[in-house]
Design a protein around this nucleic acid. Structure first.
Lengths: 206, 206
DNA sequence: GTCTATAATATGATAGAC
DNA sequence: GTCTATCATATTATAGAC
């Protein structure tokens, strides 16, 4: 078997695998310590690579960070996209809140790296916020307005209602340290879901 | 006038004034760049002092940070402390939400430095969270339970309701970049207050 | 109390052997 | 593709003159 044919795919596979390992490690470290609080060495150690080897895959520290952010944002929008104007508002919104809470509990680092980025002025994702995110919100604002116009839910300010859902659901990822400190021990997922859904949705019932 | 008597108070006044200037400058810089993203030099420049001179007042960078945090937290709790069990629940809660939003709009850096600290595991304020904050929440949980028992508001999970208020109100400070990017331009304070109060409180009405 | 100068260290990034 | 060694720089912190 000729070397050239055998090696090319193998290299790609290793590359692909290493990139995934790096992104996973980088997410955890960036999320815990912030952009400048993170050293390339920390990421390399967590990924099981040497620092120069890691920098072979991503030339600069910032490149790793941007790759992690983009990878995370892709997942982030999925639940909101699924909000269906044809469905029952309370079922749709309950599902959305439930999925966002699931994400917060399952992957706090993903929420935190995003929170950290915005907290510091979102220098790397301005375009994303003003483009795809804004368009998606505008689309779902229409969905909520439609439900209001159809008399299915009480009138509410749609964009601020979306902000409220984001704020409350992500609170359980970003501020879990505080939640646990104040509660003593964290409540179960099911209890949190019930409480949050009631707080955010009961006021919409006719 | 003897030197010793004249100088001592003068030094204290300068010290006190410089400390205030340093804390104000440090709040802005730490809030914008995070703990490790901030250099002592940045704070010194913003405070109008030389770096060694600043380090004369606070021996280490971490000391400045802790001082800023403690100073900020003091202000932070005041509105919640004022929640009065004897008052009308809707007036009390509307006032609390309104004051928290005022704080978020007036002083985003104060909210952000706190958010950043918790986001990264709250290494410097663990005791505060598990002590004074927890006690205050427990006290106000009782207030809410009292209102529920008296039939003044519908049943709600009190601690998670407090978390929701924190999450939503602080969202307008911590995530203002995102809010403005999504809305195009930020809505007026009055509109935000109305929307938030409705979202959080309407579900409590009997 | 405040400054200049500098020590001590940490870290991003690269060169070059294998 | 991966490693060791190292450069270049940035940054915390201090020493010591004034």
């Amino acid at each position: 078997m000729p070397k050239t044919l055998a090696k090319a795919p193998q290299k790609s596979r290793i590359q692909h695998q290493n990139q995934a390992v790096i992104l996973k490690a980088a997410l955890e470290v960036f999320s815990a310590y912030g952009y400048r609080g993170t050293t390339v060495d920390q990421i390399a150690v967590k990924a099981g690579l040497s620092k120069p080897n890691l920098l072979y895959y991503f030339k600069r520290k910032e490149d790793i960070y941007v790759a992690v952010l983009e990878h995370t944002l892709e997942e982030w929008l999925k639940p909101l996209r699924m909000l269906d104007v044809g469905g029952d508002p309370f079922i749709e919104l309950t599902r959305y809140i439930s999925e966002k809470l699931d994400m917060s509990f399952a992957n706090p680092p993903a929420s935190r790296i995003f929170a950290n980025e915005i907290l510091h002025g979102a220098p790397h994702i301005q375009k994303f916020l003003k483009g795809p995110l804004r368009e998606l919100v505008e689309e779902k604002v229409k969905v909520i307005r439609h439900w209001i116009a159809a008399g299915k839910i009480k009138p509410i300010d749609p964009p601020h209602f979306i902000f409220a859902i984001w704020a409350v659901t992500q609170h359980y990822a970003d501020f879990s340290t505080q939640v646990e400190a104040v509660l003593g021990s964290a409540d179960g997922k099911a209890q949190v879901k019930l409480a949050v859904a009631e707080i955010l949705l009961r006021g919409l019932k006719n």
